[in-house]
Design a protein around this nucleic acid. Structure first.
Lengths: 153, 153
DNA sequence: TCGAAACCGTTGGGGCCGCCAACGAAGGCG
DNA sequence: CGCCTTCGTTGGCGGCCCCAACGGTTTCGA
């Protein structure tokens, strides 16, 4: 089939073609989102993974690190570092689980809950800015399509 | 306004909230796209930046590295490595520009053009798979919305 | 019951990507 | 001639993602 293809030189420029690909646009949009969120969370001295893990701890009450890793998708190796940071700021506590001495029971502190509320607000604002070019109806449509692209494993 | 806010515990779980944010979904979609494209290009022993730079060289004929960096958005530091790789495989040539001895004139070789055609095909197929959950009309709509999210600087 | 298998947290390592700083060489311009 | 800019190159940093291995612990089946 290659021998019947139109010569690429006759068509659109190769670079234009690449930069219009979904993967390219998604990369750029994702990068913009990460930057916006990272800058917002940085106002509170925190990073995205920390916010995610803090949220997971809030939901799952006393929970083991491995369980946190499964629900958030973070590597166990990285989870150690994230929890170290959170623990150093006394946003979570790491206590041995008496019923299973392999596990650490991770719990949210009061300070952690306050911090989570602030972070959630900052993250929401950043996401609002991310989609500020779209109307509410368009945002809903965009997110629905995006979810289908993501979930189609 | 914070004192009138509904208690977060009464609403949706914090982790669910985060994972439904546009920034989170965009990150996941972008990661999937990068993985699909990377795997596809790897069949031809190449990576995404190399494909992009090869495309830019094809478009811009003999061109300086700095110019390539500007049009593709890659850091000059990274451009050096990419061009080294491409040159090692004899897909491009790096010749001193006689009219400006600071510049390297980057040119596509015949082998580079063949390789670019293969890579473009592989990249297109990967992107087709990336959006395979959407109908043609939905893809068009999705890309239009995505472009607006990206371009709104 | 006791040994194999699985799971836990931790450490170490690596790859990709985006970005910045500095340098010598070369050109532009007063 | 000096001054500023640009060019390619080297070196380095930080974030994010993933894999391998190890000692300690639990589980489950032979």
């Amino acid at each position: 089939m290659a021998h019947t293809r139109t010569d690429p030189d006759a068509g659109e420029p190769a670079l234009t073609h690449i930069q219009a690909l979904p993967s390219w646009l998604l990369n750029r949009a994702s990068a913009r989102g990460r930057r916006l969120v990272a800058d917002a969370l940085a106002q509170d001295g925190m990073r995205m993974p920390h916010h995610a893990v803090l949220s997971a701890v809030a939901d799952l009450g006393p929970v083991a690190q491995a369980e946190l890793g499964r629900t958030t998708g973070f590597d166990p190796k990285d989870m150690v570092g994230i929890l170290n940071d959170l623990q150093a700021q006394e946003l979570i506590t790491r206590a041995p689980d008496p019923s299973d001495r392999r596990k650490n029971a991770i719990t949210l502190t009061d300070e952690g809950r306050k911090r989570l509320n602030r972070l959630t607000k900052l993250g929401d604002e950043a996401n609002e800015a991310l989609l500020s070019a779209l109307s509410p109806a368009e945002r809903e449509l965009f997110l629905a399509l995006l979810a289908r692209v993501v979930d189609q494993g």
